[in-house]
C-alpha cells in the first residue's frame, strides 16, 4: 500500500504548520519590510518632487528678483548719471557765475581805484589851475579892469528881469524903513568915490527911487569876490565876478569827467563779460589763473602810482569822489 493514512494526516498537519510558520516568519515580515521600504521610497520621491518644485519656484523667484534687481540697477545708474550730469552742469554754472561776479567785482574795484585816482588828480589839477587863475586875475585887477567890472555889473543890474527886480525891491523895502541896515555892496577891490556914486544912482534908478531918497549903502571889500561886485539884501543877491565863471567852469569840467568815467567803465565790463562767457567751460581754471595774474599785475601798477602821490591827497580825492 503506497498510501499510509497516518502519514497523510501527519503531512497535512505538518504542511499547515509550515504554512502558518512561514506566514509568521517569512511572508509577513518580508512583505512588511518591502511595504515600508516602498513607502519610504515613495515618500522620498514625493519629498524630492516637492523639493524640486520648491527649488524650481525658488529658482524662478530668484531669476525674477535678479531681473528686477538688474532693471532697478540700470534705472538707478541712469538716474544717477543724469543727476551727476545735472549737478556737474549746475556746479559749473555756479562756479562760472561766481568767477564772473568776482571778476566784475575786481574790475569794478580796479576801476574805482583808477577813477578815484583820476579824480584826485583832476581835482588837484583843477584847484591848482583855478588858484593860479584867481591869483593872476587878482594881480591883473587894475583900475581900468575895475572900471570895466563896475560897468558890466551895472549894465547887468539894469537888465535884470521884472520879476527879479520886483523881488529885489520887496526885499529892499522890507529892509529899509525898520532898521537902517544898509544895502551891502561887496567888491574884490577898492571903489573910487565916483564909482560908488555911479553904483548908488544906478541901483536907485533901477529900483525906482529918486536920487534924493536916503538909502544907506555899505561898501565892503571882500577878497573872496574875485574881480567882481555883488549886492545883497535880505536873501536877494545880484552879483558878477570872475569867480562865478570859474565855479561854473569847474562844474562843467567835473560833469564831463564823471560822464566820461561812467561810460568807460560800463563799456569795459560789457566787453569782458562777452568775450569770456563763450569759452569758459573747459578753460575755466586757466582763465581764472590768468585773471588772477593779470589783476595782480594791475594792482601792483596802481599801488605804484598811489605811492607816487601823497597819501592824504589820495584819501581826500576818494572821499570827494564818493561824496
Amino acid at each position: 500500500m503506497l498510501i499510509d493514512w497516518f502519514t497523510v494526516l501527519a503531512q497535512v498537519i505538518n504542511f499547515l504548520i509550515l504554512a502558518w510558520l512561514l506566514k509568521r516568519f517569512l511572508y509577513r515580515p518580508i512583505l512588511n519590510a518591502i511595504d515600508a521600504r516602498e513607502k519610504r521610497i515613495a515618500s522620498a520621491l514625493a519629498d524630492a518632487d516637492k523639493k524640486s518644485v520648491e527649488a524650481e519656484q525658488q529658482r524662478n523667484e530668484f531669476v525674477h528678483k535678479n531681473a528686477v534687481f538688474d532693471a532697478q540697477q540700470t534705472t538707478r545708474t541712469n538716474q544717477l548719471s543724469a543727476e551727476v550730469k545735472t549737478e556737474r552742469a549746475r556746479l559749473f554754472d555756479e562756479v562760472r557765475q561766481q568767477s564772473d561776479d568776482l571778476r566784475v567785482k575786481l574790475q569794478l574795484a580796479l576801476k574805482n581805484e583808477q577813477l578815484s585816482l583820476q579824480d584826485a588828480l583832476s581835482q588837484r589839477a583843477r584847484e591848482e589851475v583855478f588858484n593860479i587863475v584867481r591869483k593872476v586875475l587878482n594881480d591883473l585887477a587894475q583900475a581900468s579892469l575895475e572900471e570895466q567890472i563896475v560897468l558890466v555889473f551895472l549894465q547887468r543890474f539894469k537888465t535884470i528881469s521884472v520879476e527879479e527886480k520886483a523881488a529885489f525891491k520887496l526885499a529892499f523895502q522890507s529892509l529899509m524903513p525898520t532898521n537902517k541896515t544898509p544895502l551891502v555892496v561887496r567888491t574884490g577891490f577898492t571903489l573910487t568915490e565916483e564909482q560908488r556914486a555911479q553904483i548908488e544912482s544906478t541901483i536907485k534908478h533901477t529900483l525906482g527911487y529918486d536920487d534924493n531918497d536916503a538909502i544907506a549903502f555899505a561898501f565892503v571889500i571882500d577878497s573872496t569876490v574875485v574881480s567882481g561886485i555883488e549886492i545883497s539884501a535880505n536873501g536877494q543877491k545880484v552879483a558878477w565876478s570872475i569867480s562865478d565863471y570859474l565855479t561854473s567852469l569847474a562844474k562843467g569840467v567835473d560833469q564831463i569827467l564823471q560822464s566820461l568815467v561812467h561810460v568807460e567803465s560800463k563799456a569795459q565790463s560789457n566787453s569782458e563779460g562777452d568775450s569770456e562767457g563763450n569759452n569758459l567751460d573747459n578753460s575755466l581754471d586757466n582763465s581764472q589763473i590768468n585773471h588772477k595774474a593779470k589783476s595782480q599785475n594791475e594792482t601792483t601798477v596802481i599801488n605804484d602810482a598811489n605811492d607816487a602821490i601823497p597819501t592824504n591827497k589820495t584819501e581826500k580825492g576818494r572821499n570827494e569822489t564818493r561824496g
Partner: peptide
Amino acid sequence: GSLSTTAAL
C-alpha cells in the same frame, strides 16, 4: 517522493 505526502498536499 511519498504518495502519502503528495496526497496530503
